[in-house]
Design a protein around this nucleic acid. Structure first.
Lengths: 249, 249
DNA sequence: TCAAGTTGTCTAGTAGTATAGACAACTTTC
DNA sequence: GAAAGTTGTCTATACTACTAGACAACTTGA
């Protein structure tokens, strides 16, 4: 909405396969994520939003229904539509542990293993882990959440030879640190982090309980043991509406 | 495509305001951005893609037309559809200079000042620069490009008292380093960087020559002088299709 | 208590999306 | 050179999105 104030988003460019209601829902969600409308505050009325976007009120209703369906807002007949529940600040440092970050923010860390398998490392994973292409790696696909709200969907690969029981341990504990400890690796640190952004496709949308097309932070990282040898590489896809990355120099 | 292989994206969840063709276009773009299909390589044929997604070939054609319209692919009748172009690796370190990064990648750095003005620092900017709210700051809105392709649209704020001629010098040189040198500040470094993601709205789409809805990396940063005092703060919006951020620990 | 404002529901018509089939124009392979 | 494969174009139909209008049910403020 802050941007809408400086230039009306009603100046709609040609449709790019995204319905009007979806665009309005995204804009409202964006305003909420930006803190323009805080939790507990009321959205403008349907007729006002319709006027701002230059669309029919029904279209706005469709957008709000979407947000309500996602638990971002709650509509009350006669009163208005109210915003429910902020972004977690996620520091990227040499020693970043999900459960610590979430715990520090006063939320309860959770997650689940979606899938796991032993597979040969393809070119990209092999390069990241500095192993020959085709080397067996354990692949863990998981979703991480805070207070039950999914924050990221990710995949971690680690050399099977170094952590053959990775999947079983991760399924039981949900912790890479535990997986590595069981493999005799008590210390590791972040070596590199590569950040890009994407929009959620159908799979991520389902895993992260997002609408397709919502922005994601895509974080590819490599962790090394004290001798500098890569021990894991991961790709995490964070819901940008729920998480922001912090880099401290 | 790698994802399509492991679980069919044809398992479509309920439509969430995003057309099929858009979803397919996004999936193809994602595969391209992930390097699954490198520049110069050929996409699978329309009939194959249609079979994979369980949609009509025309729907695939619509998706490919979208990607072609954005210059990501080029279709050749009889031959197939080919991938064009790469992302610039953009390191985030204490001493990051746009022109150096672009030059190192063998591209020619460019850019233009879109707007500039003297304004009172609002709450957020004041906090970032550790100055009283309302203190006059110079605001510079600019677009940066490599080889003429826009990479980021951004805004930099700096205390007017320290660099009163900032706008004039930036307009002439396109360099913050030059602006600060003229103000007698020969050394500064990155203090903090905060990364999130968004989708391009109409304004950024126009400035970055993107389709609205494309993913952006949003980078908020603060630079300090050797005495630790904030000297500039910036917000940059990078086209995620063209730039990836690198964090070295 | 009443008026104004707000969300909720119903009916109806038009434009865009998705599907389907067919054929044309071109490239690649044998 | 012929067959197979690939993109390009045309016509047609069914479904969804978007618009419009109207009224119901509820809340809020004077």
């Amino acid at each position: 909405m802050a941007r809408a104030r400086e230039k009306p988003v009603t100046a709609r460019p040609p449709a790019a396969g995204v319905t009007l209601w979806r665009r309005i829902a995204d804009d409202l969600e964006r305003a909420i994520a930006a803190g323009d409308i805080a939790a507990g505050e009321k959205l403008p009325g349907e007729t006002e939003i319709a006027a701002r976007f230059g669309v029919n009120r029904h279209t706005v209703r469709r957008a709000i229904a979407e947000l309500a369906g996602r638990g971002l807002v709650r509509a009350a007949r006669g009163s208005g539509t109210f915003v429910e529940g902020g972004r977690l600040a996620y520091p990227i440092s040499a020693r970043t542990r999900f459960s610590e970050i979430v715990g520090t923010a006063g939320r309860e860390a959770g997650g689940r293993l979606v899938a796991s398998r032993l597979e040969p490392a393809d070119g990209a994973i092999a390069r990241r882990l500095k192993i020959p292409k085709g080397t067996p790696v354990v692949r863990l696909d998981f979703v991480r959440s805070a207070n039950g709200v999914p924050l990221s969907a990710g995949t971690t690969w680690l050399p099977a030879a170094r952590a053959p029981d990775a999947a079983k341990i991760y399924e039981a504990t949900g912790s890479i640190t535990r997986v590595l400890a069981a493999a005799g690796i008590s210390d590791y640190r972040r070596y590199s982090t590569r950040v890009t952004a994407a929009v959620a496709d159908a799979i991520d949308a389902a895993r992260l309980d997002l609408s397709p097309g919502r922005p994601l932070l895509v974080v590819e990282s490599v962790d090394v043991t004290p001798d500098g040898k890569p021990i894991t590489t991961s790709t995490g896809r964070f819901a940008a509406d729920r998480v922001e990355l912090m880099v401290e120099n």
